[in-house]
Design a binder for these strands. Structure first.
Lengths: 196, 196
DNA sequence: CAGAACCAATAATGTAGATTAAGAAAAAGG
DNA sequence: CCTTTTTCTTAATCTACATTATTGGTTCTG
């Protein structure tokens, strides 16, 4: 079995145990894709027929507000799932953009296949329940942070939560995620330097 | 069967079909409780052994920031589940306060019983997967709104999303949910009046 | 039903973070 | 390798919303 496929199975087997056939059945439902940096994966209005599991590279989802500003909602580096969850579960038009921030390799898994898989191998219902629970907790934490922390604290929080992403991302994308302008993030970092 | 129990079963049967025995088995895992207005249901540091399903009344969850300000994370009126999801799934110390905003009647459902139920009647895994998916989408929308809308727009959004809550809640709690001070919400509303 | 606690409105003043602008540095891409 | 594009920094100015303070109205609760 090739390395890409073992990455996704390893994640699943943290939560449920699968037989060899079950593994193969699941893998047969995935399609392998490569996305070119900045070439749109999904746009508002389209339907998210699939969720993507990132093997290599990194995706981001974002919204654009009335004034044309981007707000990054989620990053998905290797080993993470990414989709417009609203569109994926309702099969109605998406609200988010999804885009690779570098050339990215992923598996696509369609909602249709997911539904079929739940009927064929009910154990998978547990796996997706668990990762959905975890994802919900992450979003909740984001709400708590957005309401209760100032920009400086949100930046520090981001650094401890995503230490690897900080290395990779252009600063303006960190700014977009924590909800400040790139100019202000730059200013904050200068201020932090002075203090040590 | 009494009315309270049928409320919760009705919600479940929107997503899965249960036999009479399965219904009874599930109901046997619930305990009925009454909470007095403003008497704490859960506090940070405690463990959320249970999730609550509201039969009558309304719960709210909130955090308190470094400066002592409350930020409301969720309301749970009749027919909604409420817990500190982080604590409930990890069985580690909670981060949120949970409190009734009026005298409230609820069913408690323990994580332990939930785990057992998933093994006994796997169909329930699906029900909880689905409501977790929906809840995740609601939190995500909140993140999108917090990042992309100004205070006025967040207030209008709240009014269309929770038309019934607006009637019931003291204004300062709406302010706490949308992330502004009560003073500023009052000012915004005056501004809105003048325009029509 | 009276005192206490809570809640809404208004207004003056303060500030975290946005906006605008411009130049320097870095990265992408052909 | 050179050109173009993107990203980062700095600084002056601006504004959405916070803070503080006061008053009057509600609604708990003993």
């Amino acid at each position: 079995m090739n390395a890409e496929k073992s990455i996704i199975l390893k994640g699943i087997e943290k939560h449920i145990t699968l037989s060899e056939e079950e593994q193969q059945h699941f893998l047969s439902l995935l399609t392998s894709v490569k996305f070119k940096k900045k070439h749109p994966v999904l746009q508002p209005g389209e339907i998210a027929h699939e969720a993507a599991f990132v093997i290599e590279g990194c995706l981001r989802s974002y919204s654009i507000d009335d004034n044309g500003f981007e707000h990054i909602i989620q990053f998905a580096p290797e080993g993470w799932w990414m989709t417009d969850m609203y569109s994926f579960i309702s099969q109605r038009p998406a609200q988010l953009y999804i885009e690779p921030i570098v050339d990215t390799e992923a598996f696509l898994f369609s909602r249709k296949n997911q539904m079929k898989l739940f009927d064929d191998i009910p154990k998978f219902e547990r796996y997706f329940r668990i990762i959905t629970e975890n994802s919900l907790v992450a979003y909740r934490q984001r709400v708590v942070d957005n309401l209760g922390l100032n920009a400086q604290q949100r930046y520090e929080q981001f650094c401890v939560t995503y230490p690897t992403l900080i290395q990779i991302l252009p600063q303006k994308q960190v700014a977009s995620y924590i909800g400040v302008t790139p100019e202000f993030l730059s200013k904050m970092k200068k201020g932090m330097m002075r203090k040590r």
